[in-house]
Write a protein that binds this DNA or RNA. Structure first.
Lengths: 123, 123
DNA sequence: CAAACATATGAGCAACTGTTCATATGTTCA
DNA sequence: TGAACATATGAACAGTTGCTCATATGTTTG
């Protein structure tokens, strides 16, 4: 039986013995569907220019909802909705101080993910 | 005039002198709108589970359209459309060999971006 | 407590997205 | 050249998303 190495081209679409075997190998290497789904969900959060702008703003300083709204020229409501999404995905955390709520980056992961993306875009 | 340091909370929503100044600072630090838009567009590409699965498959081996379709249980057409998107964003490149077209990762950037995301998801 | 303020939330709508279906393009081989 | 195959593309439709508007929640202060 022919067993191509890991990095050789797979045999293509007509039905053959080899074909399904190698497909199975790749299938086995794939992470669970659920995990891949979650990963896509995470990137979806970065995939909106308003949210990206919010994150970049928070790279500079902790900010409250109203200031961010001011900064980006959007409604307080719009920003609050987006912050909710960011918070739900643990990219941002909130700290209440009296009436105002200050948002900041949840961790440095966010910076590095965005940074990697930016490198790719700026090439 | 009061000038808070870079990492102090900004003054909030009522109109004050300080307020607009600090907002302006953050505004100046933000990359151009166009660049942020492109960055969001890039992440949008990662933000779909089909495309993520395709990329993960290509982590293992160069593959043709039909095999990927087989692997993921989707139409050849669906996969071709998604590969188009991936290619347009330079995440993937194509190599024709007779009738079949083999797709592979465009560069290692892709791996590291996806990897960073995966780390965040798996926490 | 009531008024003022900052934020959060829900409904609704316009715009966008991923898939399928039908079909076109490109390649090989008899 | 024509048939068979692999891929690409366009149209259309269902599902999703981000914004706005109206309003609710939570906090401070008179």
């Amino acid at each position: 039986m022919i067993l191509p190495g890991q990095n050789e081209p797979l045999e293509c679409c007509e039905e053959r013995e080899v074909h399904t075997d190698v497909l199975q190998e790749v299938r086995d290497a794939l992470p669970d569907d659920e995990l891949l789904y979650d990963l896509a969900e995470l990137f979806k959060v970065f995939g909106d220019s308003t949210r990206i702008k919010i994150l970049y703003a928070l790279f500079e300083a902790e900010m409250c909802v109203c200031d961010i709204a001011n900064l980006l020229g959007l409604t307080q409501s719009a920003i609050s909705h987006q912050l909710r999404t960011l918070k739900a995905n643990k990219l941002v955390r909130a700290r209440r101080e009296g009436k105002t709520v200050y948002y900041s980056l949840a961790d440095q992961h966010v910076r590095s993910i965005v940074g990697q993306g930016m490198e790719h875009v700026m090439e």
